[in-house]
Every structure is written in C-alpha cells, then in structure tokens.
C-alpha cells in the first residue's frame, strides 16, 4: 500500500512512517501541511492518505478541506482523516462527498497499531471507517430524525458497527449474534430507512449517511 502522510507534529509523522514502513507499506511522502499534501498526492497518486485535521497555517480544519479536495480531484485515493477531536461538522463535511474510500478516526486509534493499519487498508480498498465516537455523535444528531428513531436498540447497534465499516461476520462476532440474524437486522434497517431493496453493498454506505441527514 502506498501512503502519503500529512501531520504537522514531527514526532507523530515519523512514528507513523516508521510503523507503516516496518509493516511492509510504502510511505511515498510525509508532509507537514495541507498545501504540501495536495502537491504530494498529485505527484505520487497514493492508495491512501492519512491527514491530520489541524495543520498550519490556521490550525483549524486544513486537513478536512484538503481531504475534501483530494476526494474530489483524486477519487482513486482513499482518505483517512484523524484528529484529537471528533467534530460533527467535519464528519458531515467529509461524508457529504459520498461515503466511500473515506475514514474519520480519533488519533488515539493509532495506539492499536494493527487495527489502525487494518482501517487504513479498508479505506484504501473503498470502505468507510468511522470512529465509534463519530457514530455516537451521528446517532445523537439523528435522534430527531423520524427514520432512525424507528430502529430498535439492537438495530442501532448493528447500524453503528456498519458505520464503523465492520463486515457482517465481524458484527455477528461483536454482538454475539448468529450471522443470519445480523442479515435480518440489516434488511430491517434498510427497510425502515427506506433504502431500495434492489441494492448492493452501497446500501450500507447509504445507511451510514442517514445519520448525517437529519
């Protein structure tokens, strides 16, 4: 996997580079701000980008804006945004351009190195990876939405794990359910959210997006 890292703290930038390299991935570039990130993406066409949200010059949302630009201009590149804080606004902005090949995680998640690299791989492969914190916030935000309010607590659990990008097998394991019941829950979720039944995997993404459309 070819990766470009944008992170203004040298300590973390080097640490990430080291860990990715030691596990057989290629870090094509490791940069310190959003402008350099855009240049590096255009130059290296990486499989996936890791972008910090707060970078110079204003230290507010440079990383999110760069991520949106990359998703627009380089749809083949996956984007994993990570930050010390999960913000509802940024999650909505990030997912407004579609929920594929995108991730939004707390920086804490790099502490579980294999899980983090797994998430990165899944984003590169086209999946959506949302931090449990994002999911919690999205649930709260959608409590007013009639559709999501119709879901049973168990269906919400399933939806939350789907939002985190888990497969049906992983969801079944996590919730200690039979694979078949997970499928049933998912069908029920799709029905309640009014998603077309002739769908494909993309329906999972649409289900996630439902959190964002109050």
């Amino acid at each position: 996997m070819r990766v470009v890292i944008a992170e203004d703290t040298a300590l973390l930038r080097d640490g990430l580079t080291h860990i990715l390299t030691s596990r057989g991935h290629t870090v094509a570039a490791a940069v310190a701000d959003a402008a350099e990130l855009l240049v590096a993406v255009a130059e290296h066409q990486p499989d996936v980008v890791i972008a910090d949200v707060r970078m110079p010059p204003t230290h507010t949302d440079e990383g999110v804006r760069a991520a949106i630009a990359i998703r627009r201009d380089h749809p083949e590149t996956g984007v994993l945004v990570f930050s010390q804080y999960i913000e509802t606004r940024y999650a909505a902005d990030l997912l407004a351009g579609g929920a594929q090949k995108v991730g939004y995680l707390l920086k804490d998640r790099v502490a579980d190195v294999s899980d983090f690299i797994d998430a990165l791989t899944r984003v590169a492969a086209g999946e959506t990876v949302l931090d449990p914190e994002v999911v919690t916030q999205m649930f709260a935000a959608s409590r007013q939405s009639g559709h999501v309010a119709e879901l049973t607590p168990r269906e919400r659990d399933v939806l939350a794990l789907m939002a985190e990008g888990r497969s049906n097998t992983a969801i079944a394991e996590q919730l200690v359910l039979a694979y078949g019941s997970v499928e049933k829950h998912i069908t029920s979720i799709f029905t309640k959210l009014g998603l077309p039944s002739s769908g494909n995997d993309h329906r999972r993404v649409l289900a996630v997006l439902h959190y964002l459309q109050r």
């Binding site: 010390q84 804080y85 913000e87 509802t88 606004r89 919690t136 916030q137 709260a140 935000a141």
Partner: peptide
C-alpha cells in the same frame, strides 16, 4: 482540554455547537 477551550470554536460557534449538541445526553434541537 475540551473544558478549557474546545478547538472547534476557532471554526465558529455554529460548528462547535453542532458537536456539543451531538454529544449532549439529551436530544437537542
């Protein structure tokens, strides 16, 4: 740190309140 100064405030009160509302234990309109 969130109790000292939530960094999202730098992006504006509306953005900061969106997260605050979403994290609130009661539903917020």
């Amino acid at each position: 740190v969130r109790g000292i100064h939530p960094p999202i405030l730098d992006s504006g009160l509306d953005a900061a309140l969106a997260t605050l509302a979403a994290r609130s234990p009661v539903a917020v309109d």
